[in-house]
Design a protein around this nucleic acid. Structure first.
Lengths: 229, 229
DNA sequence: TCAAAAGTGTTCGCTATACACCCATGG
DNA sequence: CCATGGGTGTATAGCGAACACTTTTGA
């Protein structure tokens, strides 16, 4: 047994992991992907996907690897938001976890190739989680809300083409507020971050489809604009 | 030599450190505290104060310990903002660093009891730093600017009592913008975050002194307000 | 037939901005 | 005496919030 412990240090080193809060939007509610733990501790409990940081990868690469394993998505919006370091947060040993949140388009998600059971939960229906993952999830939500004031992160959660109503529902889900439909519509169009797809709408009752205008966004970002909500 | 390496693991573990970007304000410019490295690598170069995380302390406790050693200050505003994990960021071994920034009142700072030479640099006069500390400093500045939209962090950098002009100079230094003196004055008073100290001003030419009204701030925070700048 | 959806208009009030003014001080 | 610093006032433009209207569809 002893000869397996071949990595030796003069001082104790904590383990380092990455955990990933994966957000999706189903058209009306914000969801988060959880995996069921198959081993102790917290066996049977739900937890955030995560794993040990490899010595040759950065934390972001590690988090992307987790994301890929769980959702099949290689490229997605991913952002580091906090590192959790309480000495007792893992009962087995000292573990420091670098936490990311990812924004994925739900309809592009394939089942993960991981053996573990994974499931999407609405944010207000998340069960008690393993370790300090409740706290991690709470902070991720907070950071997402904060981030939305500086970057149009919402678009990462919608399909390529979407209606203004869908966009509004998303913003309302993230910020937990209600907007006036008409004001939201005008405000969004006025920002010029949306490009209309189908210029001819036969039906006054069928909404326009839009795409996110990334070029225009980069333009505005140069000038240092803010998204007011 | 071998028998010093008594901490053994089945898998390799990175070292974990905390680094601390300590900001101060001298009345006209934003400053940052750097220490001169006494050992290789980067011997003689300037770097951010930092050190290894102890196994019984959280990262924040570690950062506070660094802050205390460098400035003598036990309580100050301190905030984790990013963890740097590039595999090659330290030429010796794999080191992950959890970075904090601290806001201190310059006039309360005592010399550090650390042996290392420490010095305050104006933000735009910072020399090339050791490791990836340039990048860390840049991100700290960015985060401070971002944070100021949600929390009145500026007050952490001023003395207990200050004039509106001083507050304006601070905001201008942080955000690198200029404000109209008269509009800034009214806006600040209108927010009601300031409590006037000397109600009688004998001299029309000597400015009022103010304190930060923390109670009022907590009130406003409940209602979810934003600082517009 | 009528409620619901989606695009368009209008009004009002707040506030950010620009800029004028007044007063006391000190060189 | 006048430039400077510091507190106060005012006018305008723009935008967000509230809410009316119109058309089309489908139950």
């Amino acid at each position: 047994m002893e000869d397996k412990l071949i990595y030796r240090y003069e001082y104790p080193h904590p383990s380092v992991t990455t955990d990933c809060v994966i957000f999706g939007f189903d058209g009306s509610r914000l969801k988060v992907l959880l995996v069921e733990r198959g081993v102790e501790p917290f066996k049977g409990k739900w937890a955030l996907p995560g794993g040990f940081l490899r010595m040759d990868e950065s934390a972001e690469q590690g988090a992307r690897r987790e994301l890929q394993e769980e959702t099949g998505l290689a490229a997605a919006y991913i952002k580091q938001f906090h590192t959790f370091t309480e000495p007792q947060r893992d009962p087995r040993e000292r573990v420091v976890t670098i936490a990311y949140y990812a924004l994925v388009k739900l309809q592009e998600v394939k089942g993960g190739d991981d053996a573990a059971r994974a499931e999407w939960f609405a944010l207000d229906e998340v069960p008690a989680l393993a370790f300090d993952h409740d706290q991690i999830l709470r902070m991720a939500t907070q950071e997402l809300r904060r981030q939305i004031h500086f970057e149009p992160v919402g678009f990462e959660l919608l399909p390529e083409e979407f209606t203004v109503k869908e966009l509004q529902l998303l913003y309302e889900a993230i910020l937990d507020v209600r907007f006036d439909r008409r004001n939201f519509y005008k405000k969004m169009l006025h920002l010029e971050l949306l490009t209309q797809v189908n210029t001819d709408h036969a039906n006054r009752n069928q909404p326009y489809l839009f795409r996110f205008n990334e070029e225009k966004y980069n333009e505005l970002k140069q000038k240092g604009f803010r998204l007011e909500f």
